[in-house]
Design a protein around this nucleic acid. Sequence first.
DNA 1: ATATTTGCCTAACGACCGTTAGTTAGGATG
DNA 2: CATCCTAACTAACGGTCGTTAGGCAAATAT
Lengths: 193, 193
Amino acid sequence: MATAIIKNRKQQIHLTAKNLFRERGYAATSMRHIAAELGIEAASLYSHIKSKEEILQLICFELAEQFLKSSDELQKKKLPAKELFKQAVTEHIRIITQNMDSSVVFLHEWRHLSEPFLSDFKLMRKRYENFYKNILKAGAEEKKFQIRDEKLTLFVIFSAMNGIYEWFTPKGKLQPEEIAEQMVEVFLNGILK
Amino acid sequence: MATAIIKNRKQQIHLTAKNLFRERGYAATSMRHIAAELGIEAASLYSHIKSKEEILQLICFELAEQFLKSSDELQKKKLPAKELFKQAVTEHIRIITQNMDSSVVFLHEWRHLSEPFLSDFKLMRKRYENFYKNILKAGAEEKKFQIRDEKLTLFVIFSAMNGIYEWFTPKGKLQPEEIAEQMVEVFLNGILK
DNA sequence: ATATTTGCCTAACGACCGTTAGTTAGGATG
DNA sequence: CATCCTAACTAACGGTCGTTAGGCAAATAT
């Protein structure tokens, strides 16, 4: 079937784009560059995709949906705050480490989205942040967490998790599950003996 | 004196560039855009600066030197690990919050530097990371810190500090000193009650 | 066997890129 | 007053950008 070939090529394009967008940034990556990586001409890309930005949109929203989906599923479990927190961090880190290229693009290149996609994206991110904010709130109400400034704490946690791409290598000795476990340990108990 | 006017204009250009590089990224910011912000033509910028990259170099290395200078001065103090750690975090956060635009460029746009500047920059960053790594090492030797994976811990701390630009506003209620204090508290003791 | 679809090609579009050359008005300096 | 210097200008350079149009050969469908 022909559709299979097309789909494959489309996937190849997205994969290559993800990789280049991550390495050089969206703005500094040209269609000719993506094409060259695949051994074809830039114009040929347009048999498979609509535009450069469409690729960016797909990357950003695909990942946003993964984050939101996993948070929705965790919500349903009705766990105590501490346990929910552990599982949320583990899930977030799983998604990031399983989608390294996409994650970097998701984190830093979303600003090149045009409207209305930009606004939609920001909204989804806000929703996801609120999921975490509510975990912190619940933990404080359960008298399990001690939080002086909610926003600060929230962003310490997000920044640490989202910064994983700076040092993680899939072939290193530290695997996602253990990263999650150790990060949770730092977040909950700190590094003091 | 004429030099004063030149210097001023040069500073204006750098200031505008910092701001635009932060907001749109280096690659997506054109010389014409910088010029327009100042009400002049793109070609006129070249009376004051050598090239677009020169601006980026100045931003990146200026900040790198600030970080290294502050770490050198802290080294000299011969403090116990925990106290050194506190002061290092406070200094880092002071520099970041005092140079918000530069910081974002420093953190994300350095990859557009050409050689040999790129290699120089990476070396300086490595030196600074080692300063922090040694604090963690010292703390572990003093049996004050409990660190399972040094690299993970290091990057949790760096990511949290460097992510401040995502939420900090100079006019907000949380000021640099207090951010530092609260972050140190999270790093050392975590959020568990 | 014929007709259609696919995946690529070449050529080109107008727009914008960083940068250089040469000029000019106006203020500072002698 | 004559000279120099500055900071801007206009014009233009070669190049690259994302994208479109139209064609062509091979694969697929009828």
